Amino acid sequence: MGHRHYSIKMQDIPRMNSRLLSVSLSKDEKDWQSVFHTHHFTEIFFVLNGKGNFLFRNDIHPIKTGDLIIIPPYLEHTEQSIPGMPLEYYVIGIDGIAFQTENNAASAQIFCNFDNRMLIADLFAQMYYEVKTEREGSDLICQHLLEILILRIMRSRHIIPVPITSVRMTKECAQIKEYLDTNYAEHITLETLTSLTHMNKYYMAHSFTKFTGMSPIQYLNRRRLETACQLLRDTDYSVSDISSQTGFSSQSYFTQIFRKFYGITPIKYRQIHTKK
């Protein structure tokens, strides 16, 4: 008779103050509009099948079956499938913690690919099943499964969880960002934003810059430019109409800001991106 016996070494394992907020299973069936968005919590995205790209504002990463992506709070992102290879993926939302690499104090997106991806996929599948069936003890089971997943990620990629309070955007900054994303075509000044949040103008600008890496006006102009690029590519509106629709005070100012950011004029941009 063969016999193997292993003792468990007792260790003081610090508790992870994480809380599972949601679990979803999605498949790109050509009816999904890929748009940049953010969340106030950490997301973990696991590719079950397919190939595509994971997009951030200034970065694109190819993704495939078995890849896992950790997205910190308030980081704009979206995903796109490669034609003929639709992405199917789990996404979980986690409150309480974010992640960082051991040698990097700043929170950032983290990519992992596991040798035993079926083991990781099974953890997501069990969480999804428990949330969907809502049976007795489902919440507790999900919480334990989440902690197992986090430990396996930490073991694989040498990352550490950090309290989400260290990266959380303030309520007021989140309110400003949402307002700018929605009302970018309107006439907006720092005074507009201070009246919205009732914050001191200079403190408001400093706080927003701290959490987004740019001032409110810089963020506003970038948001306007992104929409302008889409209109230049996909419509035949005049440059004057586009500058007006995206909130710029004049066509000349629009052209000046556009050239400074992209290195070319709006007309040249249209010519490049509408070539057959």
Rank of each mutant, 00 (worst) to 15 (best):
T192I: 01
N183T: 04
V162K: 06
T194M: 14
P161D: 04
T165N: 13
T165V: 10
T170M: 04
P163H: 05
S195Q: 14
E186R: 15
M169C: 08
C173H: 07
T194N: 11
E191N: 13
E172P: 00
K201Q: 14
I160C: 10
I160F: 09
P163W: 02
Y184D: 01
Y184R: 04
K171W: 05
A174I: 00
E172N: 11
I176Y: 04
I176A: 00
R168E: 12
V162H: 00
L196G: 00
D181R: 09
H187L: 13
M169K: 07
M169Y: 01
Q175M: 15
I159R: 03
T165S: 14
N183W: 07
T170W: 02
H187G: 07
L196K: 05
P163Q: 03
K201S: 13
T192H: 02
A174H: 09
T194R: 11
T182H: 12
T170I: 05
H158G: 08
T197N: 02
K171L: 12
H198C: 08
E186W: 12
T194G: 03
A174D: 08
Q175G: 02
I159C: 07
K177P: 01
M169P: 00
T194F: 09
E172I: 02
S166L: 10
Y179I: 05
M199Y: 08
L180N: 00
I176C: 09
H198K: 12
H198V: 09
I164Y: 09
E186H: 15
E191P: 00
I188P: 06
T192V: 05
E191Q: 09
D181A: 03
C173G: 12
L196R: 04
T170G: 13
I159D: 01
K177C: 03
L193K: 06
S166K: 09
T170K: 06
H198E: 14
I160E: 07
I176K: 02
M169D: 04
H198A: 14
M169W: 01
C173Q: 10
E172R: 07
D181Q: 10
I160M: 08
S195H: 14
K201T: 15
L193T: 03
S195A: 13
Y179G: 01
P161A: 00
M199W: 10
H187E: 15
L190N: 14
M199L: 12
P161G: 02
